[in-house]
């Protein structure tokens, strides 16, 4: 499923956060959105997963405007991994992941063996099956993040939105998470802090700066010394090895 954002503008009071952003994620592609803090990455993603309404512009899923979908129908198309907190209540890991089945259920439906199987598979994929009966709030930040990923997988959607999904994860699980989502075959749009991880896993990169798309394309063509210096304000050396690119930062 293709996701496209057309001329997305977002204003809070008088402040323009996004100034007309266009983005296309073709079916099955892994799109990375990078940019410094405050560049509008999260705001853009929140427009796509419906937490924010853009002031102008629209999001399309395969040419159908997202605003024409009900919340439930949209949740069958797009799953989200983001930073959420539980505010004082607790669920078991299994209960948490089972909530990923909610968009597929009517009010009086019960969760059947099929749903539990999907939950088990998702937990296995993220390596959390041993934690099934544990309480969610007793897990470490990284383990919680993997449970949220399992929930998104259990949602069985054609699209995945990841809002800085590798926060809290150690390097091994950062790589594991990126590999899992890449192998899911979903259309993926992810905000990513770590430029090397973005370069390693993404098919395309959008560089956001001050609410505008500053550059767009394949990682090896987007990332240059000049762009990194201009957008992030740091000096970097780029090592290229065939199609791969490694960025080393300097003071």
């Amino acid at each position: 499923m293709e996701i496209s954002a057309e001329n997305i503008q977002v204003q809070f009071d008088k402040k323009e956060i996004l100034k007309g952003v266009d983005l296309v994620a073709r079916s099955g592609r892994f799109i990375g959105v990078v940019g410094p803090n405050g560049s509008g990455k999260s705001t853009l993603l929140k427009c796509i997963y419906r937490v924010l309404k853009p002031t102008k512009g629209a999001i399309y899923l395969d040419d159908v405007a997202l605003r024409n979908y009900s919340a439930k129908e949209a949740a069958k198309k797009i799953a989200v991994v983001a930073q959420h907190n539980l505010a004082g209540f607790d669920f078991t890991v299994q209960e948490m992941v089972l909530m990923g089945r909610a968009p597929h259920k009517n009010a009086l439906d019960r969760d059947n063996a099929h749903d539990y199987q999907i939950v088990d598979d998702a937990l296995k994929t993220t390596g959390m099956e041993a934690f099934k009966e544990r309480s969610f709030s007793s897990l470490s930040g990284g383990e919680q993040q993997r449970v949220i990923l399992a929930r998104a997988l259990a949602q069985q959607t054609p699209c995945l939105i990841l809002d800085e999904p590798t926060n809290h994860l150690d390097i091994r699980y950062q790589l594991q998470l990126m590999r899992i989502v890449k192998e899911s075959g979903c259309t993926i749009i992810s905000a990513i802090h770590d430029l090397n991880i973005a370069a390693r896993y993404c098919d395309e990169i959008y560089v956001l700066s001050k609410g505008c798309i500053r550059a767009h394309g394949a990682p090896h063509s987007v990332f240059t010394k000049e762009l990194i210096n201009e957008v992030f304000g740091v000096k970097a050396t780029l090592l290229r090895e065939q199609d791969e690119i490694f960025i080393v930062f300097r003071e």
């Binding site: 419906r50 949740a75 069958k76 989200v80 983001a82 959420h84 505010a87 968009p103």
Partner: peptide
């Protein structure tokens, strides 16, 4: 919370 709920369809 609101954000997670909307991404899960409510």
């Amino acid at each position: 919370g609101d954000e997670a709920a909307i991404s899960l369809g409510v």
